[in-house]
Design a protein around this nucleic acid. Structure first.
Lengths: 137, 137
DNA sequence: AAAATATTGCAACGATGTTGCAATATTTTT
DNA sequence: AAAAATATTGCAACATCGTTGCAATATTTT
């Protein structure tokens, strides 16, 4: 871990607290998108449920995390840095296996979408693929 | 409405019932993706909550509807025919306004994603864009 | 029309996420 | 370095979204 987590928090005017450091550490270690439950599990449910929810929400608000769309009924989050960005728009692409649930982050190249009116502002662009991964095919 | 809804249900070996016809009718009329709540509202909450959930689930299972990823905590659904398809893979693209919540379905063209291992099978491919729509910019 | 089968409605439950508020921790000020 | 100001936490209660079990009802098949 080369990044200074305390500095990251400070730069967003957030207090430096054990919960926030733990949650950030999980994201930097796993380097993929994670649900609330994933984080709780990674930290052996030592953190208060509600505080983790609040931490995720404030990180999204501050732009440290992005909220990633999924077909399930729980949200997923990824470090903003995890997505590629062209200045204005953050991009994520992921493959979710419908059988084992594994999430595979992907690199994206050369995407074009037609028919978006010119006065629309895109802030986040996500690709979600569902199917079967190599192990489950 | 040119499609025969009863025939559609019959061809999937589903009983033809008022609830199913109502839900299908809403999808064909609105021709966009809808949440459970959208459907309940469109039908003035005359249908039983649970029955609508079950209807949506069985329609997804039978391939009549697809489940569309969102960043929120409720699922969205669209008619399978609403997405473009190249035989194996269904594609959807939508723009969700972060301010007014409006969902705009989009046409997609010419998408390529690199780095997906060859033994992965993609069944559904969705693009979700978040930002501000024309009215909210 | 009766038998077989599938669907519905209701109550209860589970999972996911939020709010209010007092207690506590962090940061800032002196 | 202590006090004051401010932000965060933990807990209980609640809200929303979705599911399950099961008896009653509707649809389909014979």
């Amino acid at each position: 871990m080369e990044i200074n987590l305390a500095e990251l928090l400070r730069s967003h005017r957030l207090h430096i607290t054990p919960i926030r450091l733990s949650v950030l550490t999980v994201f930097y270690k796993k380097n993929t998108c994670l649900s609330h439950e994933d984080i709780q599990r990674a930290l052996q449910h030592r953190l208060d449920r509600v505080s983790v929810y609040r931490t995720l929400r404030i990180f999204v608000k501050k732009g440290i995390l992005n909220c990633i769309p999924t077909s399930g009924n729980s949200n997923m989050y990824a470090l903003h840095d995890f997505g590629s960005t062209d200045g204005q728009t953050v991009q994520h692409a992921l493959f979710i296996c419908e059988r084992c649930g594994m999430v595979y982050p992907l690199k994206v190249a050369d995407i074009r979408v037609t028919e978006l009116p010119g006065n629309f502002t895109v802030k986040q662009f996500d690709i979600v693929m569902n199917g079967k991964c190599g192990d489950c095919s």
